[in-house]
Amino acid sequence: MIKVRNLTKYYVKNKALDNVSFSLEEGEILGFLGPNGAGKSTTMNIITGYLSCDSGTVEIDGIDILDNPTAAKKKIGYLPEIPPLYNDMTVRGYLEFMFRLKKVKKPMKEHINSICELVRITDVKERLIKNLSKGYRQRIGFAQALIGDPPVLVLDEPTVGLDPQQIIEIRRLIRDLGKKHTIILSSHLLSEVQAVCDKILIINDGKIVADELKTSLTGTGSATSKLHVIVEGRRQQVRSILQKVDGVTDVTDLGEPEKGCCEFTVNSRRDVRRLVFRAFSKTDFNILEMNPVEFSLEDTYLGIITGKINTKEAAADVSNI
C-alpha cells in the first residue's frame, strides 16, 4: 500500500533524512518512533506531498506522489503535528470546506455527521474553532483527516494534548480504523506505539535504526534478557553456577529473601531460562522462583537510540530461541 524507497532530504546542508526505506501492507498500522528532531515529521510531510525529497520515491497504492500528486493525495488523510485549522471558522464550516477541498463524492451532511460522531465533536459543531480547547482542536484535525474515507491515514502525534480518557478513546479509534485503513502514526510515546501498532520503525538522526515487528522488539526474547531467580542453597556456589551458564553476562546479588535462600538477577544475551533450570537440576539446589523481567519497548528503544543494542543481532537471537 505504501512504498517508501531511499528517501533523502537535506535542509540546506543538514541531512534530515538519510536513505529511509520501508513498506506497509494494506490494513497495517505502522508506528514511527524516535526522539525529537529525528525526522519523523519530515518523513510524513514527504509521504503526504507537503515537502519534496532530494532523492527517493514514495508510492501510495502504486501511484508515485511526484508523478501524480493529485491522485496520490486523494488517497491520503493527513493530520499534521499542528492541526491545520482555520480559527475563524466554525467546526462544521471548516469540515465542509475540507470536504469540498478534497473533492469527496459522498453525501456531505451524512458523511460529516458520521465523522463528528466518530471523533466525538458533535456537541461543538457550531462553535468557532478558536474558542475550543486543545483536545477538541486535535480531534477536529483528526476529523478532517478522515474526510473522504481515504485508504491511507498519516497521523503525526495524534494524541498530543489530549487527556488520558481521550487518549484511550483515540487509540481505540485508531485500532478500529486500522481494520480498514493503512495507518502511519508517529509518536514519541512508546506506550502508545506499543498499544496501537503492528509494526514499529525507529528513526534516529534521519536514519532508520530498527524496522521490526513489534513482537521481536518487545517481550522476553529481545536483545538482552533479564531473569529474576531465588534459589535454595549456598550463595557462593549458586552464583558460580549461574555465572557458568552459557550466555549469562552479569549476575547481581539481591540478598537473602528467606533463610537459606539467595536471590539474584541474571543478565544474559538471550533467553537462558532452560539452561538455568538444567544447570540447577544437576545439583542439590532447588529453584524456588524464576521469572523473566520483561523488557519493555522503552528499554529496547533507549538501547537502540543510544547504540547499545544492535537490532540485527537482536532479531537473530529471537529466531534462535
Binding site: T48, G49, Y50, T70, A71, K73, I82, P84, M98, K102
Partner: peptide
C-alpha cells in the same frame, strides 16, 4: 503562520 497551508498543499489541488 497557522500551518493551514499543510491542509491546502496536501489536498488534491495543485
Amino acid at each position: 503562520k497557522n500551518k493551514t497551508d499543510q491542509a491546502l498543499l496536501t489536498a488534491p489541488v495543485g
